[in-house]
Amino acid sequence: MKILVVFVVMVLFCDCVMTKECTNTPTQLSSHTYRYALLNSKNKTLKQEVLTLSSHDHDHLTPTDDSAWASLLPRKVLKQEDEFSWMMMYRQMKNNNGGSGKVRDSGSFLNEVFLGDVRLDSDSIHGQAQQTNLEYLMLLDGDNLVWSFRKTAGLPTPGVAYGGWESPNQELRGHFVGHYLSATAMMWASTGNDTLKKKMTAVVSALGECQEKMGTGYLSAFPSEFFDRFEAVQPVWAPYYTIHKIMAGLVDQYVFAGNDQALKMVTQMADYFYKRVQNVITKYTIERHWRSLNEETGGMNDVMYRLYTITGNANHLLLAHLFDKPCFLGLLAIKADELSGFHANTHIPIVVGAQRRYEVTGDPLYKEIGTFFMETVNSSHS
């Protein structure tokens, strides 16, 4: 009884919501705020019970054949005359140019204006906000940012690690560095500030030393053992969420700042994780991989599609596909409004990645997924 009371108090204190995964099974661990409080709790009994329960809440639809995909739509809703068209849509998805290794002709899309070609009026409210952001980025210390990366790589650790979720004892450590890489790359493109470029380039170089020291292509502020737990569907705090931020930051450093070292580093990371996912599927099954995706993975599909447009490496395209969480995107593909209760920070990036898949491959199904999601959110979930 005492444990139950403590649990209820913690949920209320954290202002958490109970969110669902693809099975619609509630899991309080979807909330980063709750998980942070739980992992820092001194109540070891509560911590063990909640984490143990959560490890069994990862049931997953496994669309490895036509019948599994067809069953995504409830039988009482699926009209018999619609069944054939759904099956045809699925087969088309499997066989269309989404898996051909060809990049879609982008002629039908709006052209994005490069940040380097835009300057804000320094006297405007937007220019003042940009200056505030620039000053904040300049305050951050490179040694402090990469402290946990160096620690993980076995390198000397000058400086002091930042706190909060970047603390050396937090499983999400390192994701802020990914945000930093993206923010500084875009800020440099927007301002041309030479001091900022030197600082962000030094951070990329320091991370490169960490990656080189580990020697496998792996790069993170936490050990690769976290992914052993992820692949075993054991409790771990969203390691791919952090990896996505780091990879996206490195891609941005290349795209917006022309840093070739960053591209080399993110490519090595992609190759490392391609082998990890390949090993899971080979050693176990594709279902095991799908099941693990009930843990938050950020926008891994999105960053891999972005990287593929740069490298043209078919392995990068395949890895992007393997992070297109099928049990969630499948619901959107058949236009089933089951969004209530899904953890937004987990699933919106997956939809963004699905839209990127359409832009890269031209697969019309993923345009439909993105369109239905936006229309549904705007009409009944906002």
Score class of each variant (00 low, 15 high):
Val160Glu: 14
Tyr308Phe: 14
Lys94Gln: 12
Thr282Pro: 01
Leu51Gln: 04
Ile246Pro: 00
Leu322Ile: 12
Asp105Cys: 08
Trp147Lys: 02
Gly298Ile: 11
Lys245Met: 07
Phe230Gly: 03
Pro156Ser: 08
Phe222Glu: 07
Thr309Ile: 11
Gln234Asn: 05
Thr297Ile: 14
Ser55Thr: 11
Asp302Ala: 10
Gln48Asn: 08
Ala221Cys: 08
Leu307Thr: 13
Lys264Asn: 08
Lys245His: 10
Leu115Gly: 05
Glu295Tyr: 02
Ser224Asp: 15
Leu219Arg: 02
Tyr162Asp: 12
Phe230Glu: 04
Ser106Gln: 12
Tyr284Lys: 13
Gln234Gly: 02
Leu329His: 00
Asp82Pro: 00
Lys367Ile: 04
Asn279Asp: 09
Tyr180Arg: 06
Glu83Gly: 04
Tyr162His: 03
Arg35Thr: 13
Ser67Arg: 05
Met1Ser: 09
Val118Asp: 01
Met265Asn: 09
Arg75Met: 05
Tyr274Pro: 04
Ala129Gly: 10
Leu78Asp: 15
Val303Glu: 11
Pro156Phe: 00
His60Arg: 13
Thr282Ala: 15
Gln130Val: 12
Thr152Gly: 04
Asp82Thr: 06
Tyr180Trp: 05
Lys275Cys: 12
Thr132Ile: 14
Ile310Arg: 03
Leu263Glu: 01
Leu339Tyr: 01
Asp228Asn: 05
Asn345Trp: 04
Glu231Asn: 12
Phe373Gln: 03
Trp237Phe: 14
Thr216His: 03
Ser71Gly: 10
Lys198His: 07
Val118Asn: 00
Asn301Ser: 11
Gln28Met: 10
Ser380Cys: 15
Ala129Arg: 13
Lys213Ala: 15
Arg119Lys: 07
Ser67Ile: 05
Phe230Val: 07
Cys210Val: 07
Ser292Phe: 06
